[in-house]
Write a protein that binds this DNA or RNA. Structure first.
Lengths: 233, 233
DNA sequence: CCGATAATTTCGGATAAGCGAAATCACTTC
DNA sequence: GAAGTGATTTCGCTTATCCGAAATTATCGG
């Protein structure tokens, strides 16, 4: 191993990355954010690719200094990789906010549309959209929007599946990955800002009784895991 | 100066085309619209590619039924190719209009931005933007916007370089290809809608004296060729 | 009709991204 | 501590898009 000059890169992630590369970095960020290791398999599943393909790309990105990779162990973003991931995340979430707020795109469609546009929109366009929205801090699903300089709230909130019985809380965010799930949660009024209180949880992954606003609902554990809660401030 | 709108037979523009393919089709449409033959070299220059690359792609697109190609002669869009080109053109021009009108992107920047986004935005998003604008018929540079069904005004207007002396006319459109040129034309107030009258033309590609509104300007023939004029109605 | 020139195509090769099958490694279990 | 299992990587190959150099074709001037 030659002692490569390991400068901690400034916030500027050099040249424009390809769409697949941005997707890998975003996925790795996301998995790390969930506290898990960004293994080949986890990445392959999230990106809907064959593990073999992920192996190759991860090696390439590691040589490009965007992530650290110990073979058979998993990948971890370098500062440069993290910066790139956050830039893409900002684009994604600003776009989601803009599409939902200004153009009235239904909130369960916004994710897929933003997924495409995030690779094409220029930085200045994203900033224009952000300004038009009043530089929002959260997207329509409650996810925090990184600033232009890569500052982002990374608080990990408890999911509704783990929220203590009896305690009142607020919905902070819902997962935006699955449009069907989103539509379902929308029907239950489980959107960011909603007040909740878990009354009971049946054992063995049974249904959860939860007050949403003034309504008593029953939801399954999978849906509950997509909803993140915080104490009322 | 030919006439009037044209209807394209409803042909399913098969599965989503790649960005390069859409660019080729758009370029061919554009060149044909200018009355010239879409030769390999013309395409190579417009797309900033090597002629060898164009040869290969044109052959491929011909086998896919998007264009007719006689080797050593040039390419011509089939109905399917034309439909695909017009779909991309609609996206491009709706995006230009939206960016300029709603988001305040400077009119010399909108082309480059739209060039990227047109390959990523969904059809329904484009329609949403169009509706938000009141389904405009022309983009900010005066170019006609095809409808969802591929109807577009293909009138070919005379350029300012050929406009008869003394006759008053209206600027119908300006070329959006070169941002520097656009900025220049903007400074001269040569935008769609402006009234013009050519007073004199110096020989040998000399400068052109032209009244723009109430101002007398002098412009060169290259700039004049980017401005299209029609009689006042 | 015959080249010369210019346009076009063909050829071999490069890069990015992906896949399936086979080999390899890590970890748990006996 | 060996073996089996599942995760990971390697290998060979595919597709899309691009390039430069060499070969080919069209066309125009005489």
């Amino acid at each position: 191993m030659t002692a490569a000059p390991r400068r901690t890169p400034a916030i500027t992630p050099a040249p424009s990355l390809t769409a697949p590369v941005e997707d890998y970095l975003k996925a790795i960020y996301d998995i790390q954010q969930g506290g898990e290791a960004a293994t080949t398999n986890a990445l392959a599943e999230r990106l809907a690719l064959a593990p073999a393909s992920v192996s190759g790309m991860v090696r390439r990105l590691a040589t490009q200094g965007l992530l650290d990779h110990e073979p058979y162990r998993g990948a971890r973003l370098t500062p440069a990789g993290r910066a790139a991931a956050l830039r893409t995340l900002r684009r994604h979430r600003i776009l989601e906010s803009y599409l939902a707020t200004v153009l009235g795109v239904p909130w369960d469609d916004v994710h897929a549309e933003a997924e495409q546009l995030e690779h094409a929109a220029s930085d200045t366009l994203i900033d224009r959209m952000a300004r038009a929205l009043g530089d929002p801090l959260f997207d329509p699903h409650g996810a925090p929007i990184p600033t232009r300089d890569g500052v982002v709230d990374e608080t990990r909130h408890t999911t509704l599946a783990d929220w203590p019985l009896g305690t009142r809380g607020t919905v902070m965010s819902v997962s935006d990955k699955d449009p069907v799930m989103l539509r379902y949660l929308g029907e239950l009024e489980l959107r960011p800002g909603a007040m909740v209180q878990v009354h009971a949880r049946a054992p063995y992954d049974g249904p959860i009784d939860v007050m949403v606003g003034a309504e008593l609902r029953q939801i399954g554990p999978t849906a509950a895991r997509a909803v993140r809660i915080a104490s009322i401030a």
